[in-house]
């Protein structure tokens, strides 16, 4: 089901980018493809703000891992924009990394932003000036060339127009600014996907999308290049979280605001189908000690806004020295 959705999405995206006549407002925001219900996602994130678990090891690990990348670069990032997702975990994990002076926190959920704002006074003062705003990643309200770093931790996989959101992030960056994002990848919740499909087939004689189509690792590099980032970098991490029962997994997803927000979802779930899903999950994947593993695949993406100081390949045909001469110079001993 997921695979089908993925290809469907890709073909429709492709169609959109080639058509000009029937898509009058065909700018980067003119996406007609609606996969996710963004309004519902806001509501879910409002709820997640109340259910949030500050000791969530998955979220904290991902946030820490993402920010760890700032230590690998010499550049400092005085002005930083933090997009939705695990906003609060990012704020806690910054701890002076990247020499951030101003941090702008944005989320599509007001309650989530308010939570971060209220939590601000509990944090040890680290001389970061924070500002808060409610905004949508698909309609980024940030002036072009105004921030040094854009961080997005586990939020962008819910955007309908991921390339568009990334292009807007790039435009918001100053030249030589860094884009740093973590999204859930296609292997995420594969066990639940299988269990859902089997239980639905068995109880209802068909399947409906319960788990969203996610980007694959191979897509991530293309996304970065398509959005125009230079020096793109992608790497993947897989986390296994163990739960006592399948219901606990759902509770966790709810607390993260990661529950189903597909436009084409069926809006109710029959109780016996839900229980069947839990039973299938347990019988197929439970470990010997009775715990239930769930896989979370996180794709980390880094990209830079173009700047002349960055290394790049020379223009084709601009070489002034023949390879034969180089060979004569350096490889003389081997070839002759």
């Amino acid at each position: 089901m997921n695979r089908l959705n993925g290809t469907l999405l890709r073909t429709s995206l492709r169609r959109r980018s080639f058509s000009t006549a029937d898509n009058v407002d065909g700018n980067l925001q003119g996406s007609k493809v609606q996969i996710f219900d963004r309004h519902l996602k806001r509501k879910q994130r409002d709820r997640a703000a109340w259910l949030i678990n500050r000791k969530d090891s998955l979220v904290n690990t991902v946030a820490d891992n993402l920010l760890d990348r700032l230590e690998d670069v010499k550049k400092t990032f005085p002005t930083t924009l933090c997009l939705g997702g695990s906003l609060e975990a990012i704020r806690r994990s910054v701890r002076g990394r990247g020499a951030i002076q101003k941090l702008i926190m944005m989320d599509s959920s007001y309650d989530m932003v308010k939570l971060c704002k209220d939590a601000e006074k509990d944090l040890a003062s680290d001389n970061i000036e924070t500002s808060f705003m409610v905004g949508d990643e698909e309609y980024l309200p940030i002036q072009a060339s105004s921030v040094d770093l854009v961080i997005s931790c586990l939020g962008l996989h819910w955007t309908n127009d991921l390339p568009g959101a990334m292009i807007q992030s790039r435009l918001a960056l100053k030249p030589d600014g860094l884009f740093l994002a973590a999204i859930f990848g296609g292997e995420t919740l594969k066990e639940l996907r299988i269990a859902c499909t089997i239980a639905h087939m068995e109880r209802e004689g068909g399947v409906s999308p319960r788990i969203s189509p996610l980007a694959q690792v191979r897509d991530a590099g293309n996304l970065l290049t398509r959005a125009g980032f230079t020096l793109p970098g992608v790497d993947v991490d897989e986390y296994q979280v163990r739960y006592n029962s399948a219901l606990e997994l759902i509770e966790h997803l709810r607390a993260m605001g990661e529950t189903n927000a597909l436009v084409n979802r069926i809006k109710f779930l029959k109780k016996d189908t839900a229980l069947a899903t839990a039973a299938v999950y347990e019988s197929m994947f439970a470990a010997e000690d009775g715990t239930i593993p769930a896989t979370f695949q996180v794709i980390y993406m880094t990209g830079w806004r173009e700047h002349e100081s960055q290394q790049k390949a020379k223009r084709r045909g601009s070489a002034t020295v023949s390879f034969q001469d180089i060979q004569k110079e350096f490889g003389a001993g081997e070839t002759t």
């Binding site: 905004g135 949508d136 309609y139």
Partner: peptide
């Protein structure tokens, strides 16, 4: 709202 600007198009 409460010092937080809400810039989602729907708002």
């Amino acid at each position: 709202v409460d010092g937080i600007p809400c810039l989602v198009p729907k708002d």
